[in-house]
């Protein structure tokens, strides 16, 4: 080994892994484009799934938004450990002198960028198509979107690493993840509904509190759990 080499710390290693994943995604762009197209299709299909004279688009929007976000996030998560599994690149990562937690956090960070990226395109699109008054509440709305994305990614990254090792592979991921997304979808949709209705953020506080709690609990739990899923 080089005498002056110093294996990276947990944060540096996470950043290296995340940057590598984003470079792959940027190079191929397949998953991201697929997720965006999926999300936009969802926005339009949902619009016609209800009678727009009976249900106002305003009332539909929060639910549509969060169902679409979670499902399109799954597209990115599915691919997350697929690229590691293809040529057993995960073995090189595991054999390297980096903490397992750093691998998880790096993958999660890249997935977070993916999900937030999809949200950044879908949210304005939804606002446009559904005539939503997002102008004044855009910042708090973006904040909720990021909080929800953190929860989705924390759980989804772990399950993605588990699912690729099973015979069901990508079929298993939604089955494991969606029940875990229920508290996220509910809290985020409820908060969004209140924000869009022009009510003060304090009204949504009971929901936000649960969402933040979920994020904290599952980031910690999944980071600690990840090493158990890879050690052989």
């Amino acid at each position: 080994m080089h005498d002056d080499a110093r294996p990276p710390g947990i944060l540096t290693a996470s950043w290296l892994v995340a940057r590598k994943d984003l470079a792959i995604e940027f190079r191929t762009r397949t998953a991201f484009l697929a997720a965006v197209v999926f999300a936009l299709l969802g926005v339009t299909i949902f619009y016609f799934a209800w009678d727009s004279t009976a249900v106002a688009a305003m009332d539909l929007a929060p639910g549509v938004l969060w169902v679409i976000f979670t499902f399109s996030a799954l597209l990115g998560l599915q691919r997350s450990f697929g690229v590691e599994q293809a040529d057993r690149a995960i073995d090189a990562l595991l054999a390297a002198p980096v903490e397992r937690e750093a691998i998880y956090l790096g993958k999660a960070l890249a997935n977070l960028a993916f999900v937030v990226g999809v949200e950044a395109i879908t949210l304005p699109a939804l606002a446009l198509f559904y005539n939503l008054p997002v102008g004044e509440v855009f910042l708090p709305l973006a904040g909720v979107a990021v909080l929800a994305a953190i929860g989705i990614v924390a759980v989804g990254t772990l399950f993605s690493s588990m699912a690729v090792n099973t015979r069901l592979a990508e079929l298993l991921l939604p089955m494991l993840s969606l029940p875990f997304f229920l508290p996220i979808v509910m809290t985020a949709a409820q908060t969004t509904a209140r924000l869009l209705a022009g009510r003060p953020i304090a009204d949504a506080w009971p929901w936000l509190r649960i969402l933040v709690g979920f994020d904290v609990v599952f980031i910690v739990a999944c980071t600690l759990a990840y090493p158990f899923t890879v050690e052989e």
């Binding site: 772990l158 090792n165 875990f180 759990a225 158990f228 899923t229 050690e231």
Partner: peptide, 10 residues
């Protein structure tokens, strides 16, 4: 066993 235990706990 490991995967199940992790899922069971979560």
């Amino acid at each position: 066993a490991r995967f199940s235990a992790v899922l069971g706990l979560l």
